[in-house]
Design a protein around this nucleic acid. Structure first.
Length: 307
DNA sequence: CTAGGATCCTGTCAGC
DNA sequence: TGCTGACAGGATCCTA
């Protein structure tokens, strides 16, 4: 499931092949396509939380939200082999990983096809939750999703998050972290990882957290997503890097997500899995106590170091 | 206003 | 082998 690091990885990959190219046609395969103005050249790609936006020089923009199983796959018309340097194969793929990455396109999951001068961009979405929309560039930030979006953890302060958590003080912190209007970018994977790094139990109430815990949550969100960005995104079964290779965040860095029943990397306790906010939620019962008090990776790690 | 569950959809997998 | 049901989750919608 593409979360912020995955979408950012796709953004970077597509920027490398799309900027400067003219959009020629757009064909929708399912649903109606509100066609935009064709003929604009790509000037850049923006990202708002998990929303990806392609901007054209004619004032049009094309916004994508991959939701859970969306993919963006770019294929060069004629895979070029440059005389100097490595060959530009021109296949760029990101999002929900499946056979479509390497198979013939369009296929039955293809929702729209965008033809550029030198290649074709396919928007695939197995489960049809994703969306795309043409709109004037100036209106992107007025889209309800974007307008309501909270700050990303890199711009978040303890005071700001505290204020936002207090608006949901009776909700479980896990549910609140998934709310993009509180803080942007976290999905189910990074919400679990963030809470582990912060040493906060997912069912703690948002209004009960102290400043120290709030600070650790911000740090944990940054740390988990940065690690993922570095390795090109999480790989579970829903994500492939933009060049089609698998990201390896989960296997390398995941402390709790997808590790139910396995040992906690910090204390050796068995990782538990429960349901919070209709979502599978993974945590370490020892590092993330339900009743506050001690806990947190930092403390445990420090104790270990002192030994 | 908030809280929390249901919902959209389809592929996968466990269990029988 | 083939069926059934549970499960996966981002954002939005609905109810209380």
């Amino acid at each position: 499931m593409p979360e912020l690091p995955e979408v950012e990885t796709i953004r970077r990959g597509l920027a490398g092949v799309l900027v400067g190219q003219k959009l020629l046609t757009c064909k929708g395969f399912t649903g109606s396509v509100r066609s935009g103005k064709m003929g604009g050249r790509v000037v850049g790609l923006r990202r708002f939380g998990k929303l990806l936006v392609i901007d054209f020089d004619n004032g049009e923009s094309l916004a994508f939200h991959l939701r859970m199983t969306g993919q963006l796959i770019y294929r060069a018309l004629t895979p070029s082999v440059s005389s100097s340097g490595p060959a530009l194969i021109g296949s760029v793929a990101g999002g929900h990983p499946n056979k479509s990455f390497v198979g013939e396109l369009p296929d039955k999951t293809t929702r729209a096809v965008f033809e550029f001068e030198k290649g074709v961009l396919f928007f695939n979405d197995q489960r049809k939750f994703g969306l795309f929309e043409f709109l004037p560039s100036l209106e992107v930030e007025k889209m309800p999703f974007v307008a309501k979006l909270g700050p990303e953890p890199w711009k978040m302060t303890v005071l700001e998050l505290k204020k936002r958590l207090l608006r949901h003080k009776k909700s479980k912190i896990k549910a609140v972290l998934l709310d993009q209007t509180v803080m942007a970018g976290l999905g189910n994977i990074y919400a679990d990882e963030t809470l582990f790094l912060a040493g906060v139990h997912p069912e703690r109430l948002a209004g009960d957290l102290n400043d120290d815990e709030i600070a650790k949550i911000i740090e944990g969100a940054k740390k988990s997503m940065e690690a993922s960005l570095k390795s090109g995104g999480s790989s579970l079964r829903n994500y492939l890097r933009v060049d089609g290779s698998y990201g390896d965040y989960l296997t390398l860095f995941a402390n709790v997500y997808g590790r139910a029943g396995e040992r906690c990397k910090v204390c050796g306790e068995k990782i538990a899995k429960i349901k919070v906010a209709v979502r599978g939620t993974h945590f370490c019962p020892r590092c993330q106590r339900a009743s506050k008090t001690v806990g947190g990776v930092a403390e445990v790690a420090n104790k270990r170091r002192r030994k």
